[in-house]
Amino acid sequence: MSARTVARFALLTALAMVLSWVEVLLPLPTIIPGVKLGLTNLVVLFALYRLETRSAWCLSILRVLLVAFTFGNAFSLWYSLAGAILSLLVMMALKATGKFSVTGVSVAGAVCHNLGQILVAMAVLRSAAVAYYYPALLLSGTVAGICVGLAGAVLVRRIPL
């Protein structure tokens, strides 16, 4: 592994953490838990398109752990982890088909991130009651996914790294 690869990976991990922190500082005024812009997905998208798949996985899992240990808690870890894994699995699959743009992949990732969180919440509550939140999360996830995806597409195309 070259120094360049290590440096690039560290840079992206740090960036993902900073973006997560920004989202903690600027919570959206909503009563639905889980509604967020998903800025961190910018970095995961970039890694997915510009690094190896293995790096994208390491990056995504690592930033979830780091974020949970620094400004999250034991609960948020599981929600984020489930969201991140499901989201990256689906984004990889859609990217592999070659039929979706970065924006399309981003939307699917956002919606699946929310789905992963809802599934964990269902398991934690032992109740399907949280499904009540999912329609709102689908809407917000789609809108956020489009915004992040459009920005992500530009980054994937323009950033020389």
Binding site: L94, T97, K99, F100, G104, V105, V107, L138, L139, G141
Partner: peptide, 12 residues
Amino acid sequence: HRCDLLVILLPL
């Protein structure tokens, strides 16, 4: 990327 529409319409 005509499948993009699908991935946006399906969640909605």
